[in-house]
């Protein structure tokens, strides 16, 4: 089964077409990166797939469920770590995780068990009783991803997870994301080419809301006629869509 599928997906805001006839398919267990400059339509695409924005037209499916007709079912199989860390600032790390697990429908015992599992998975033992607002950017991002994983989602959306992090924190987070590879499907949006290059199974490049290139790193390099993802991205971006 495809984990994510879009068919002619369109999102318009008045005069602006943020996403234009997007056709994508992501396999189960794949780490799929959406690349693009600011305003390319990456976050809008993620929002539509997470039922946070209604498509103007076209169809979007997550684990075979329609993002417009079966919203409750889609929400029960996804997890999202938004661009902003979106944690509860005065709750501790443990309390944030417990809260999200209860929201995801786990009982008290199940919540405690799942919280402990994620604290161990993310090596958060030393910050577990710290309030979220006192955490560094890297820890906040880890907590944000852990909160997204609490309901055992089948598809995880990471919207620019390493934005604003220093190089060490970014590398640390890459390890976390790598540890999830193959276990669940991950849709990653990022500005950082080396991040997409390092983590992704396949990459989609979006330009002005349209899909400009899609494939593995080597396939993208081939399509662009350039070596390295950054060079390939620049070549594709300069060429524009359909030029």
């Amino acid at each position: 089964m495809l984990a994510v599928e879009t068919k002619g997906l369109v999102k318009r805001y008045k005069d602006l077409t943020a996403v234009d006839s997007l056709d994508l398919s992501v396999n189960e267990g794949e780490l799929f990166s959406l690349l693009g400059v600011n305003g390319a339509g990456k976050t809008t695409t993620v929002r539509m797939l997470c039922c946070l924005s209604e498509p103007t037209s076209g169809e979007a499916y997550v684990m075979g469920k329609s993002c417009t007709a079966d919203m409750a079912q889609v929400k029960s199989v996804i997890g999202i770590s938004p661009q902003d860390t979106a944690v509860s600032p005065r709750l501790t790390v443990r309390e944030n995780l417990m809260f999200m697990s209860r929201v995801c429908g786990l009982d008290v015992q199940g919540s405690k068990q799942r919280t402990d599992e994620l604290i161990e998975l993310f090596s958060m033992q030393k910050v577990v009783n710290k309030r979220a607002k006192t955490l560094s950017g890297g820890w906040k991002r880890k907590l944000s991803i852990a909160m997204a994983l609490i309901g055992r989602p089948q598809v995880l959306f990471l919207d620019e997870p390493t934005l604003g992090l220093d190089v060490l924190a970014r590398r640390e987070l890459w390890k976390v994301i790598e540890s999830l590879k193959g276990k669940i499907t991950i849709i990653l949006t990022t500005h950082y080419m080396e991040e997409a290059e390092h983590l992704s199974d396949r990459i989609a490049i979006m330009i002005e809301g349209k899909l400009a290139a899609l494939g593995t790193l080597s396939e993208i390099e081939q399509q662009a006629g350039a070596q390295g993802l950054e060079n390939a991205f620049v070549a594709i971006a300069e060429r524009g869509v359909g030029k």
């Binding site: 997470c50 039922c51 946070l52 409750a72 929400k75 029960s76 996804i78 999202i80 938004p82 661009q83 902003d84 860390t85 979106a86 944690v87 509860s88 600032p89 999200m100 929201v103 995801c104 429908g105 909160m147 997204a148 309901g151």
Partner: peptide, 13 residues
């Protein structure tokens, strides 16, 4: 403002 509600919107709440 802090996108916390956005996270909750993506849950069954």
């Amino acid at each position: 403002g802090g996108a916390f509600l956005m996270r909750l919107y993506a849950t069954p709440m």
